[in-house]
Design a protein around this nucleic acid. Structure first.
Length: 102
DNA sequence: CCTGAGCGT
């Protein structure tokens, strides 16, 4: 599951995000976006989690969480690519309800 | 050193 993390402090790096999200589950990968011009961090990143349940729990807990005095925003990320033949993420995991549970 | 903007090769 792709997770968007915004409003991050410039001090935060991928390791920090990984540590934070690993508290709630197994983190597949972490990506911090850096600015093309300044080279500094843009202040947001992405976290990919294998387990959707843990991902949702992490989102619920980490959204509006206080990090270094900054209220970070954590939400489900939009698909970065829109491939033909349904290559763009189009599955039940991307939605809210999964199989009626919840 | 500083800044703030809700989406990535």
């Amino acid at each position: 599951m792709n997770i968007y993390v915004g409003n991050l402090p410039y001090s935060v790096v991928e390791e920090d995000l990984r540590e934070i999200f690993e508290e709630y589950g197994e983190v597949a990968s972490v990506k911090i976006i850096n600015d093309k011009l300044t080279g500094r961090s843009k202040g947001f990143g992405f976290v990919e989690m294998d387990e959707d349940d843990e991902a949702k729990k992490a989102i619920e807990e980490l959204n509006n969480a206080d990090l270094s005095g900054r209220n970070i925003k954590v939400n489900e990320s939009r698909p970065r690519s829109n491939d033909s033949r349904g290559g763009g993420n189009r599955r039940g995991g991307g939605g809210f309800n999964r199989g009626g549970r919840y």
